[in-house]
Write a protein that binds this DNA or RNA. Structure first.
Lengths: 117, 117
DNA sequence: CTCCATATATCGTCTGACGATATATATCAT
DNA sequence: ATGATATATATCGTCAGACGATATATGGAG
């Protein structure tokens, strides 16, 4: 059961930034790292990945530069900025708090409800 | 720090169904119950709430009927269907699994990365 | 020479959350 | 009484983000 697009929504950027915190990297490898880390449950689609990069660069969360390797297809490397680090830390904290609340909401409270109406 | 719209996305229906599992109820009270249960962190907007009801009724997750109370504004009550229960159980399980994976993804793995690249 | 993995990129579509707005009733303060 | 506030439901239009489809380029395996 893979992670659905709607449950992913809003998390993509944070997940990518989490990878970039480990050092500069390029799209394809970030994508593979995420796939591995999620044990195959999350495979970001190309369109999702690259639109996220663009968006994040425009909003100053990351910077990019072309890799100088001659071998293979050209790679565009991304580097996390200070703004990106702040954004990441905020989202991380936010997620843990949200997850706790969401857990309660999804469980629904009220252990033994018997309301007839 | 309230729950952002994007983190909410995809969870609304599950959260509403969790409430209806406690017995038939109407929109306004469901909304208040969610607000209380989340300690004010999640306040579903009217538009979100009522579009969700419509969507869910059309897809057979819930059924509705007008309350017969003469007092106050008319209330439309909702009842969870069998399909709704299945949907809820699936989403609940799915969420707990997804949350676990998402936790790893957001933390990003690789404790002490020092890749210069 | 063709197929596949690597690698990046854009266009257009669809879905779901929400701001704005409308409508109606009951209660409470002025 | 009159206007504000809480209760209660509903729709329209907008916006953002995930993704299917598609395009392009390279290098190695068969």
């Amino acid at each position: 059961m893979a992670i659905s697009n709607d449950l992913l929504r809003g998390h993509t950027e944070t997940i990518i930034l989490a990878q970039l915190k480990n050092g500069d990297n390029y799209g394809y490898e970030i994508s593979k790292a995420i796939e591995t880390l999620s044990m195959g449950q999350l495979v970001l689609k190309d369109a999702t990945l690259y639109t996220a990069f663009r968006r994040m660069e425009q909003s100053g969360l990351i910077e990019s530069y072309w890799g100088d390797g001659d071998a293979g297809a050209r790679r565009r490397y991304y580097r996390i900025t200070d703004a990106g680090r702040n954004f990441y830390e905020n989202n991380k904290t936010n997620w843990f708090e949200t997850a706790e609340i969401l857990k309660n909401l999804i469980l629904g409270g009220k252990k033994n409800a018997d309301r007839t109406l």
